[in-house]
Design a protein around this nucleic acid. Sequence first.
RNA 1: GGGGGUGUAGCUCAGUUGGUUAGAGCGAUCGCCUGUCACGCGAUAGGUCGCGGGUUCGAGUCCCGUCACUCCCGCCA
Length: 597
Amino acid sequence: MHKYRTHTCSEITKKNTGETIKLSGWIHRKRDHGNLLFFDLRDHFGLTQCVIENSNKFFKIAEKIKPESVVCVSGLVVNRSKETINKNLFTGEIEIKVSSFEILSESNDLPMPVFGEQNYPEETRLKYRFLDLRRKEMHDNIILRSKVISYVRNKMISEGFLEFQTPILTASSPEGARDFLVPSRMHHGKFYALPQAPQQFKQMVMISGFDKYFQIAPCFRDEDGRADRSPGEHYQLDIEMSFVEQQDVFNAVEPIFYKLFTEFGKGKTVSKTPFKRIDYKTSMLKYGTDKPDLRNPIEIFDVTEVMKRDDCKLEIFKKVIEKGGVVRAIPAPNTSTKPRSFFDGYNNWAKEEGAKGLGYILFEKNKDKLIGKGPLGKFFSEQAINELAKICKIKESDAVFFSSDQVKEVERISGIVREKLGKELNLINSKKFEFCWIVDYPMYQYNEKEKKIDFSHNPFSMPQIDLNDFDKSDPLSIKAYQYDLVCNGHEISSGAIRNHLPDLMYKVFSKVGYSKDQVNKKFEGMIKALSYGAPPHGGMAPGIDRIVMLLADTDNIREITMFPMNQQAEDLLMGAPSRPDEHQLKELNIKVLEKKK
RNA sequence: GGGGGUGUAGCUCAGUUGGUUAGAGCGAUCGCCUGUCACGCGAUAGGUCGCGGGUUCGAGUCCCGUCACUCCCGCCA
């Protein structure tokens, strides 16, 4: 007989009745009747109930042993009597009559129980992650993560993609997030950087002639954590393809996502392919964000023209429009009978969010006539009200909120109002995965703070413009072959067709203030690589963690990460980051300055 | 770097307008219990009320500071 087990804790059923078997696992739960003791033995696979009587020489030991100790038991498989069958357990029709009981590893008193579904403090969970991971929900999440990764890997390989590793110790690159630096021992004063993404490497792979590449790639960025963003590191399904246009990338990726979410989405419906494509500008107008939750049926409408009309007497809005602002309407379906406090609540909330305020009109039908009520209703003529209703596809019993300010601010506010309305009015169908592509991102954006033009996304993206027309164009009007994949309001991936033309690259960078020499210096390898025959190429990099979060239906990334750091980017289990020894520092020629108070 | 929330027994939480000895459930320990599966019953132990200062006759409760965790803003090409 095997030293530890003949079976796992989730495979013995009636068909094994009468066999003598051996199991190893953790003591999950004990039910001590004094002269008769039940305990559930747990391993990765499941639970099996074991029973031991006081006549047994191991009874006293079994009675004493603490939960989560690891034991090896052997015994006879016996059928349970009809009344004592546990239908919730796969092994619930049988139990093991213990004949031998060996302690393999004893547990101390637990800082947090494994059994039960109570919530525990984050700090304790992280400090005792190995206990937390034994709990069913966490265990299942991590298994899901593993399955998602291997599913994706198999799909990619079967689609002809090759998996390559790229360096972890690499060079710091300008633009982007803060880098993690690693001091070089051999080169005094020099540092490696951990890759924020294998961006340049994956392009090199294409230039090296490999055609289709993917990698489950660790990415390191020194940013602060959020509920859906681990501080420090995350994983991307990094993809790159040669001789492709945007549509080819979509065609390659869509079926994989459709199948992945159908397979692991717990029965939720998934958008049929091809996924909806929304250009950036439209998305900002209709949804107030570039990651719209399309489960939310509310759409935002521009009503600036209506507000300009002479039969609309709202002077506040007119003034904003004169200063170059806009007015957008956010319909709130079936709310016209809500109490005034509902609308005032939104107004106050919007002010807390930094808005100047939210006006609103309630619509009502009075003898076939649509009339506008609420504080702003009286400022509109009948015609103006009807025009509003037409633009916003309003029906009686609806209301609309108005946001008025400069475009960017209006987009932001209307976007969060739309989101809040969707949630609070229960308009969001949680049984769906709604995918869409956001396309045609602007290449540049204006940085108000530094009063200069910046890249809005990836500087290596291909602009949607000819080299010869570049200088004639307003940079802020130039779009890029740059796209995001969005699901249920989460940005799951961004990607782009890359700029493989050095001359165009110099132009692109010149607009944000890089000279040709600077580009040559900062991107030496890249420019060199593009100068010896580079295939047109593009790809994307879906975030593995966010995908698993969506599939596991959790709203915190730590729930699907095996060993996450806390918000202060500390690993409480391993004690990272830690102070190096003096001799380590000396070897690296590094001196730590004490923090000034 | 900034803003919000939380911090009372190992864990989850209660604790009134400031008022005597800070409670409950789970867990732990001990005892009883042969059919439980969140087993049951009884008892016991367990507290710097995050920490420091202040107001007050009196502070878990009010004020100031500080620390930890968390959520958000900044940051995330």
